[in-house]
Amino acid sequence: MIQKKICMLGSFAVGKTSLVRRYVESIYSDKYQTTVGVKIMKKVVQSRDKEVTLVLWDIYGEDDFQKMRWSSFNGAAGFLLVADGTRRATFAKAVELEEKVRQEVGTIPFVFVINKHDRVEEWAFDDAIEEQIAAKGWTVLRSSAKSGENVEEAFSALLRKIMA
């Protein structure tokens, strides 16, 4: 069986754990519970008629209190880079983390997910940020772990990139 390690990466409280739980268990909770350490979940999916086990590493969000331990990325086939569309600062953090992945791990496939799209009235990602994302040529999806919007699609898009 094919097994692929996928890491979740992004600032704290952007919804990495919620995206994984929505994807694996179809569960969502409004309550923010911070992740300390690493949580690993698995999901078996079909890709090009093959069964693939996704090993999802939900890594704690980097901030002043916890720094990333890059050894967790060893063996990763790709990652979901997650930002919170209602908090501009999470974009700068995403840019910084993506750069660090390239330095520490090398170039591996990723998909940029702007989460919390259900709170569009609080949306803080403006044209300036959109233009920066476009300039980078990233694959980007607006998602909502709450409503399920684009959650499946984000992981599928990443898997397609990994399997390409």
């Binding site: 704290f12 409280a13 923010y32 519970q33 911070t34 300390v36 901030d63 209190f65 916890q66």
Partner: peptide
């Protein structure tokens, strides 16, 4: 501790 600190940041 981290939950309190991050809630405060949010």
């Amino acid at each position: 501790t981290l939950q309190t600190a991050r809630n405060a940041l949010l």
